[in-house]
Computed example of a mutant assay.
Amino acid sequence: MSRRRYLFAYDIANPFRLRKTCDVFESHGTRLQYSVFLCHLTRAELEILQYRLINIIDPTEDSIIRIDLGPQHSPADVHQIGRPRHLPHTGPQII
Rank of each mutant, 00 (worst) to 15 (best):
M1Q: 12
M1P: 11
S2L: 07
R3D: 02
R3H: 14
R4V: 00
R5V: 04
Y6T: 04
F8I: 01
F8Q: 02
F8E: 05
A9N: 12
A9V: 11
D11W: 08
I12Y: 08
A13K: 13
N14T: 11
F16V: 13
L18V: 04
L18Y: 15
K20E: 14
K20G: 03
K20F: 00
C22E: 15
S27K: 14
G29R: 04
T30Q: 02
T30W: 06
L32R: 01
S35L: 03
S35I: 04
V36A: 05
C39I: 01
H40S: 08
H40T: 01
H40I: 00
L41A: 03
L41S: 04
T42S: 15
T42G: 01
R43Q: 08
L46M: 10
L46S: 12
Q50R: 11
Y51L: 02
R52E: 09
L53N: 07
I54N: 04
I57N: 03
D58Y: 07
P59D: 10
P59I: 08
D62M: 07
R66H: 08
D68Y: 09
L69F: 13
P71C: 00
H73R: 12
H73Y: 13
S74V: 12
P75S: 08
D77P: 10
D77A: 15
I81A: 10
G82I: 14
P84F: 06
R85Y: 11
H86I: 14
L87P: 10
H89G: 12
H89V: 10
T90V: 06
G91R: 06
P92K: 15
Q93W: 10
I94K: 11
I95L: 15
